[in-house]
Amino acid sequence: MYSLLNRINTRLHLFMTVPAALLYGIFFIYPLIQGIGISMTDSNGVTEPNFIGLQNFIEFFNDDRAKGALMNTIYFAVGSAPLLNIFGLAYALFLDQNIRGRTFIRTIVYMPAVISPLIMGYIWYFIMQPQRGFLYHVLESMHLGFLNGNWLADSSTALNVIIMVNVWQFVGMTMIIYLAGLQGIPGELYEASKIDGAGYLARLRYVTIPMLYPAIKINVVTNIIGSLAVFEIIMAMTEGGPGYATESMSIFIMRMMYGSFTGYSTAVALIMFVVIVIPVFIFLRATKSKEMEM
C-alpha cells in the first residue's frame, strides 16, 4: 500500500500535465503533423489530393512572389524588432525616473497597444491619405506641403511607413516589460556602483542591462515572433500593395490557401515556422550564455 501511495505521489506531477499535454497535442502537434502531410500534396482544399513529395518546398524557392513575401517579412522584422526594443528601453529608462506626470505619459505611450492593429492600420491609412488625409492638411497648413507624398503607394517607402506605425503602436508594450524589469533591480546595486565611482553610462552598461536580460529576452523573442507573423496592420494599410510590394508571408499563405493552392500554402507555412524558430533559437542560445555568466 505504501509503495502504491509512493508511486502515485511521485507520478502525480506527470499526471497533472495530462490536460495541458492533451490540449497541446490536439491543437498543435496533431495539426502540425497533418500540415506536414498536406504540404507534400497538391491539395487545392476541395478535391482529393495527390502526393507530390517535396515539390511544394522546391516551388517556394522558384516563386518570385513567395521570395518577395519572405524578404518583406524579414525586412519588416529586422526594422521593427530592434526599433521596438531601442525605443521601448529608452522610454522605460526615461519614465523610470521621478518626473512629473510619468504615469500619464506611460498611459499615453501604452494606449495604442490596446487597440487592434487592424483598426490602428485603418486610422493611419486615413491619416496618411494624400490630398485628403489629416497629415496632408497639417503639413499644408504649416507651409510644409513639399513634404507631402503618397508614401503608401510607393513600393520603396510603403513598408518603412508600416514599420514606423507598428513601432509607434507597440513600443508601449515593450516599455512596460522593461519598466517591470527596471523596478526589479535592487537599489543597492546602483548605490554600490556609485560608491565605486560609476557614472550613468557605466551603471547602464554594467548594472542595468545585465539585470534586464530576462526582460530583454521576453521582448526580443516576442517582437521577433510578432514581426515575422505580421498580418493585420499591412492588410489595413496597403493590403500587401501596391501589387505585392508589402505582402508578408502570413498574407501570402492566406491568399494561397484560399486560392486553390492549399498544399503549397501549407508548405510555405512550415517554411515560415522555420524562419521564425531560427532567430528565436539563436537569440535564446546567445542570451543563455550571458545569463549563465551572471
Binding site: Y125, Q131, N150
Partner: peptide
Amino acid sequence: NEDALTASYDN
C-alpha cells in the same frame, strides 16, 4: 487621380 493606388471605393 494622383492617389490612384491608395484611394478607396468611398473616396
